[in-house]
Design a protein around this nucleic acid. Structure first.
Length: 551
RNA sequence: UCCCGAGUGGUGUAGUGGUAGCACAGCAGACUUUGACUCUGUUAGUAUAAGUUCGAUUCUUAUUUCGGGUGCCA
C-alpha cells in the first residue's frame, strides 16, 4: 500500500522552528512578518519570501504580519502600498495585522534617546563624505569621528533639536557607538538617524528625522513579538548589528534573524530599479505587463496564485545562491492549468476550408467536452458548417516525415467533429494558398473511419459563428538567462517578447469568456482574457505554450 | 587572501558514519479525437587533497571555486 506524500519537504528553517518548538522556545509561539519597502511592485522573488513567512506561520498555527518598512519617504508611496496589499491578498494570504515601521517612529525615537543616555549613540557633524572616509575599507580599520566622545547631555540636546527641525538635511546624523575597527563594516558606528525634511506618506510632516533600516527593523520585529525574522542572505552581515541594538535596549523580546537565499530566476530581473526603468522607458506597458516578473504581471499573464505558491514550495529554501530554470515555473502553471482550464478552440492564423460535400446551409451544433478528463466540467456547443477555418500551420503542401496534420490527399480529424480529406488547394495570383477544398466523411462523427486512420487531429472554428479576437503571444523578456550580468540589461531585451495577432478567430463559446477563467486553446497553449478586452474586440493573453514534443 | 556565507546529476533540492533519493529538464517507448495529458523505462551527481575510521557525501584540516559586505538605501 502506498501512503500519499502530503507533507512538504523540510528545509533548514523548518528544522530550526521545529527544534525551537520542541524546546518550548518563545513559549512555542511562531510569529513572522513580511516586511516590504513600499517603493515598487512585488515580484516573484517577493513571492518566495511571502510564501515562506506566511507559510511558516500557517504551518505552525502562528501569526504573520504585513509590515511596511516605510522609513525612506523619498522613495515610497501609497500606490505601492496598495499594490502590495492587493498582491499578497491575491496570493491567498491573510496577514494577522497590518503594521508600518512608521507606526513606531515615536518609540524608535525614545529608544534612540535611551541609547544616547547609555553612551551608546552620538550625534555626528561629519559630512556624509567624511563619514565614508573615516569608515576605512574592507581591509583597513576606520577611525573615530571627532564627535564620538561628545557628552551625553550635548548629544541629547542635539538629537532633540534634530527632531525639532533646527538643522538642515545632512547637517547631523545620529550614530551608534560600536567599533570603528570592526571587520564587519556594519558595526563601524552605523548611522541610525538622518535628517530628511520631507513629507512622509503616512506621518505627514510630523518628522524631519527618519530612522535607518538596521535600527528600525530589529526594533519593529521586537515590538511585534516576532519570533523568527526571516530575511535574505545579504542581511547576514547585518545580523550582528540587529543583535547589538536589541541587546542594548529593553525591548519586548529578541527575535532570531535567519537568512535564506533570494530567488534568482533565469531570463528575468528582479531589481526594482531595473523593473522601474522598464516601465518608465516603456519597454513594457506597465508594472502589470504580462512579461514582467511582478505578481501583477504574472496575474495578468494568467498565472494562478496556486501555481506560484507551488513554485515557491518546489524551489526550496536554502542558503545557497542558485538559479532556477524557467522550466520549473512553466511546469507549475501547466500542471495547474492542465487540470483546471476549460478547453476551447481558437485559430490564430486562419486558413479557410470549404467542405465541398457538406450541405450548403446546414449548421450542426456539436457538443464538445470542456475538459477531456473531467466530465463534470460539462460540455459546450460548437457550431459546425460548410466553411470553417483551420490553422495555417496545420496544412502543408510538402509535409515532412511524421507529419500529423493536413496535406493533399490525406485525412485528419477535426477535433470533436468529422474526419476530412484535403482534395484541392486554391491559390491566388501570387501563388499563395488562400483556401482548401476538402470533403468530409459523414460517418466519422464520434467514431473512427473504417479500415483507415486519420493522420492526426487539428483544431478549427466555424467561420460564420466564430468571433474575431486579438491574441497576444508573450515570450521571455530577455534573450539571455542572466540579463543582470550584461553591461546593459536593455541590450538583451527580447525584441520578440510580444507578438500581437490581430486576425484570430475564436469559437463562439469564447464570447462568454471571463477574466476569472483560464482556457486551453487546444494544441496552442493556455490563455486568459485580458482586461483590455471589450465586447467588440476580445483580447486574450497567452500564459504559456503547451509542451511540445515534436522535433 | 579583511569579514561572513555556500559548494550533491544539466538545473533545483533531500538524506544518512554503512548501496546517494525526489523534482524539473533530457533521451527512449506506450497510449492518445490536443504532437497536450497520462504511463513506463532511462542517461547523469557528493568541488579538490589529506586525515580520523573497518567504512566519510556526512566528522577534522588545508586548498579551491562562487556569492555577499566600504549608503545619511532597504
Amino acid at each position: 500500500m502506498q501512503i500519499p506524500q502530503t507533507t512538504s519537504p523540510t528545509h533548514f528553517i523548518r528544522q530550526i522552528i521545529s527544534n525551537d518548538l520542541s524546546t518550548n522556545k518563545n513559549n512555542s509561539n511562531v510569529a513572522t512578518r513580511f516586511p516590504p519597502e513600499p517603493n515598487g511592485y512585488l515580484h516573484i522573488g517577493h513571492a518566495k519570501s511571502i510564501c515562506l513567512n506566511f507559510g511558516t506561520a500557517l504551518e505552525n498555527n502562528g501569526t504573520c504580519n504585513l509590515r511596511f518598512d516605510d522609513t525612506n519617504p523619498e522613495k515610497e508611496s501609497i500606490e505601492y502600498m496598495e499594490s502590495i496589499k492587493r498582491d499578497v491578498a491575491w496570493l491567498g494570504f491573510e496577514w494577522t495585522e497590518l503594521r508600518h515601521a512608521s507606526d513606531y517612529f515615536e518609540q524608535l525615537y525614545q529608544y534612540a534617546v535611551e541609547l544616547i543616555q547609555k553612551g551608546l549613540a552620538y550625534v555626528d557633524s561629519l559630512s556624509a563624505e567624511d563619514i565614508r572616509l573615516y569608515r576605512g575599507t574592507l581591509t583597513q580599520a576606520g577611525k573615530e569621528s571627532p564627535d564620538r566622545n561628545r557628552s551625553i547631555t550635548e548629544n541629547l540636546d542635539l538629537f532633540a533639536r534634530m527632531r525639532a527641525g533646527e538643522f538642515a538635511d545632512g547637517q547631523y546624523v545620529l550614530r551608534a557607538k560600536i567599533d570603528m575597527a570592526s571587520p564587519n563594516m556594519n558595526m563601524r558606528d552605523p548611522a541610525i538617524y538622518r535628517i530628511r525634511s520631507v513629507h512622509h506618506q503616512r506621518t505627514g510632516d510630523a518628522w524631519c528625522i527618519y530612522p535607518m533600516y538596521d535600527y528600525t527593523h530589529c526594533i519593529s520585529d521586537a515590538i511585534e513579538n516576532i519570533t523568527h525574522s526571516l530575511c535574505t542572505l545579504e542581511f547576514a552581515d547585518h545580523r550582528p548589528l540587529y543583535d547589538w541594538v536589541l541587546e542594548q535596549l529593553q525591548t519586548p523580546c529578541h527575535p532570531q534573524q535567519i537568512e535564506f537565499a533570494r530567488l534568482q530566476l533565469e531570463y528575468t530581473i528582479v531589481s526594482k530599479r531595473k523593473l522601474n526603468q522598464l516601465v518608465t522607458e516603456k519597454h513594457v506597458s506597465g508594472w502589470d505587463d504580462p512579461r514582467m516578473p511582478t505578481i501583477a504581471g504574472l496575474r495578468r499573464a494568467g498565472f494562478t496564485s496556486q501555481s506560484i505558491k507551488d513554485f515557491c514550495e518546489r524551489i526550496g529554501i536554502t542558503k545557497q545562491n542558485s538559479w532556477i530554470e524557467m522550466g520549473v515555473l512553466e511546469y507549475c502553471i501547466r500542471e495547474d492549468l492542465n487540470v483546471n482550464a476549460f478547453r476551447a478552440m481558437a485559430v490564430l492564423e486562419p486558413l479557410r476550408v470549404v467542405i465541398t460535400n457538406y450541405p450548403k446551409d446546414k449548421i450542426e451544433n456539436l457538443e464538445i467536452s470542456n475538459h477531456p478528463q473531467r466530465e463534470e466540467l460539462g460540455k459546450r456547443i460548437v457550431p459546425f458548417s460548410k466553411t470553417i477555418l483551420i490553422e495555417n500551420d496545420d496544412f502543408s503542401e510538402n509535409p515532412p516525415a511524421k507529419y500529423k496534420r493536413l496535406s493533399v490527399g490525406e485525412e485528419v480529424r477535426l477535433r470533436g467533429s468529422y474526419v476530412i480529406c484535403c482534395d484541392e488547394v486554391i491559390k491566388n495570383a501570387d501563388g499563395e494558398i488562400i483556401e482548401l477544398h476538402c470533403s468530409y466523411d459523414e460517418n466519422t462523427l464520434g467514431k473512427n473511419p473504417e479500415g483507415r486512420k486519420a493522420k492526426g487531429v487539428i483544431h478549427w472554428v466555424d467561420e460564420a459563428s466564430s468571433h474575431a479576437a486579438e491574441i497576444r503571444l508573450y515570450d521571455r523578456l530577455f534573450t539571455v538567462p542572466q540579463p543582470d550580468n550584461e553591461e546593459n540589461f536593455l541590450d538583451v531585451v527580447n525584441p520578440n517578447s510580444l507578438q500581437i495577432l490581430n486576425s484570430c478567430r475564436v469559437e463562439a463559446s469564447l464570447k462568454e469568456a471571463t477574466l476569472e477563467h483560464r482556457y486551453q486553446f487546444e494544441r496552442t497553449g493556455y490563455f486568459c482574457l485580458d482586461s483590455d478586452s471589450t465586447s467588440e474586440k476580445l483580447v486574450f493573453n497567452r500564459t504559456v505554450t503547451l509542451r511540445d514534443s515534436k522535433e
